[in-house]
């Protein structure tokens, strides 16, 4: 699961996909997840980081993470290299 390399993510929460010309905005936790995905972290690491920092539960984070990934795929922001969900 990797964010496409040329997607521009700015600190303000503004995301730009130069391949399609589309722009997006994300909330702070969304931004953190994007950064972690970009750094190549897998789900286990991301979940741990989120739960270390925020008051939440494993099930909630897992459900929200999967939903977030679904949206990233729908928006074509994920590298499409035939790789299966990890």
């Amino acid at each position: 699961m990797k964010i496409k390399k040329n997607v521009a993510i700015s600190d303000s929460g503004f995301i730009f996909n130069p391949d399609t010309g589309e722009s997006f905005s994300a909330n702070p936790i969304g931004m953190e997840m994007l950064e972690m995905l970009r750094d190549g972290m897998d789900y286990e690491e991301i979940r741990k980081n989120i739960l270390d920092k925020y008051k939440s539960e494993k099930d909630t984070v897992e459900k929200d993470y999967n939903d977030f990934i679904t949206m990233l795929k729908q928006y074509n922001l994920i590298e499409n290299d035939g790789q299966k969900d990890d």
Binding site: S10, S12, G13, F14, F16, S23, S25
Partner: peptide
């Protein structure tokens, strides 16, 4: 420039 669009869109 994209920066201007980004500025008005996010702030």
């Amino acid at each position: 420039d994209l920066e201007e669009f980004q500025q008005i869109s996010t702030y």
